[in-house]
């Protein structure tokens, strides 16, 4: 009798990539269109990374928030099964409620499996404005969550109206907040952040001082240098806005 017969399952570890997307009214039009387009285009890349990675399977979950918040699927889906459903923009920016909803799913009763079988998740927050609800309370709940503490957290500030202080509080560092000023930059930065987070997040840790979040930040920073209309939020402020969303 073999100890590893057909009854024994050795699943790949799971790394879940969360998109948390602001779908408030100000996102309407070209911004939300670019988000939809970018995520649709990045999914096959995530599928490829997942297929080529013997360490981990990448799953995708997406939470949209406006006046309320809702998940696109009731569970994280493997990248190859995740069919993006275009999100629509309307109404308010309940980012605090989104934080609480995210915290509820970052648990074993939610979307996460046993810590033994998982890598820390990667969370990408996209927003073009400021919260209209009690963000601090929602973030306080989220910051208690062990999965959130361990997660790779990156935020994309869409335009100059995005509240970068809020996004910095979410990610824990302004180094992880990237600002985009036009549609092309938005599409490119979503692709770079999603792909980099998935590549680094789904690999076993190696000895060293840098965290996975720091590794992601370093790689995205170097990519941002080559994307017109994108910058690291911690960079010195420019004198005038150069948003171009038409």
């Amino acid at each position: 009798m073999s100890l590893l017969d057909e009854t024994v399952e050795i699943p790949r570890r799971t790394m879940t990539l969360f998109f948390v997307i602001d779908t408030s009214g100000s996102m309407a039009g070209s911004k939300i269109g670019a988000v939809n387009d970018a995520v649709v285009n990045v999914l096959p890349m995530l599928e490829e990374i997942s297929a080529e990675n013997p360490d981990a399977e990448i799953k995708v979950a997406a939470l949209e928030f406006s006046t309320t918040c809702s998940w696109l699927y009731s569970e994280p889906k493997p990248a190859n099964e995740f069919v993006w459903q275009d999100v629509q923009a309307n109404a308010l920016t309940s980012m605090g409620a989104a934080c609480k909803e995210l915290a509820s799913k970052l648990s074993r009763s939610g979307f996460m499996k046993s810590a033994s079988g998982s890598f820390a998740p990667a969370i990408i927050l996209l927003s073009d404005g400021a919260p209209t609800d009690d963000f601090e309370s929602g973030l306080a709940t989220l910051k208690q969550n062990n999965w959130f503490k361990a997660a790779i957290k990156v935020a994309i500030a869409i335009g100059d109206d995005a509240d970068k202080d809020v996004l910095t509080k979410f990610t824990g560092t302004n180094e992880a907040v990237f600002t985009v000023h036009n549609i092309d930059a938005l599409k490119q930065i979503i692709r770079v952040v999603a792909v980099t987070s998935s590549q680094i997040g789904s690999k076993s840790s190696t000895a060293g001082d840098t965290t996975k979040q720091e590794q992601v930040i370093a790689e995205v920073k170097s990519a941002v240098d080559n994307i017109g209309g994108a910058e690291v939020a911690s960079a010195p402020a420019t004198t005038a806005s150069y948003d171009d969303w038409d």
Partner: peptide, 16 residues
């Protein structure tokens, strides 16, 4: 246990 993820899979290994 990192090889099995869910506890049930780990338990099954020791049952084996």
């Amino acid at each position: 246990d990192d090889s099995f993820g869910e506890e049930e899979n780990l338990y099954n290994f020791y049952i084996q």
